[in-house]
Design a binder for these strands. Structure first.
Lengths: 104, 104
DNA sequence: TCCCTATATAGCAATCCAGCAATATAGCTT
DNA sequence: AAGCTATATTGCTGGATTGCTATATAGGGA
């Protein structure tokens, strides 16, 4: 994903919050019955509920985040779990630094 | 300016390009008669011409960048020059890092 | 099989954004 | 004063974005 696409992805309050939460799922979400918070990630419904948005809207935000490569989905029957793609985030931060800040 | 506002500011191809150019004005713009590229910055018309957009559109983009604190305007009679606010850019990068990346 | 739960898709409304042309403002220069 | 140049403002359009409700799909359990 290009730098500009990732910036558009992050330029939304809810998506930025989701990314922040996914950094430390255990700190932000209750334990799950059907999937480990760390290993598999956080399930879609939990994210929608915590943000106070409808399930379709949450589905859409997660699609954007996955599309940008920032988050990785795992499906288990009819649950989908999302975890942060830390490598992609750090690559993005490097790219951005190279683009808008004078090299140190 | 808040992190999210700055992200929205950067989530636009033309504004991102302007920021990139303003990092090194001498490399990207011809010398100016009425203001030093380094000291005062690049004049609005030069930016509009180089991007191939109308002057009002350029005025608007610069307003957004100034508003975000990323760029500083200097008026000299009826020219306005813009230079990068490097400190603000680096503060933003730190903020973003703290927000979306696990602390190192 | 029937229902319940989780997610996806479709379709719609409201809002925001990026661009433009036209025009206003303001400072030089002749 | 008249004209030229640089920027700002206004008002408009098309398209993207965010949200919703309603509905579809699909798995699991009674």
């Amino acid at each position: 994903m290009s730098l500009i696409e990732i910036l558009k992805t992050l330029a939304n309050e809810n998506r930025l919050t989701i990314l922040e939460w996914l950094q430390d799922p255990v700190a932000h979400f209750p334990p799950q019955k059907n999937g480990d918070l760390i290993e598999h990630g956080v399930c879609l419904g939990a994210i929608a509920r915590k943000l106070g948005i409808s399930q379709p809207t949450a589905t859409n935000h997660m699609k954007v985040l996955v599309n940008a490569g920032l988050v990785t989905p795992t499906r288990n029957s009819n649950w989908v779990y999302f975890r942060l793609n830390k490598e992609a985030v750090s690559l993005f931060l490097d790219d951005l630094q190279n683009k808008v800040a004078t090299q140190k």
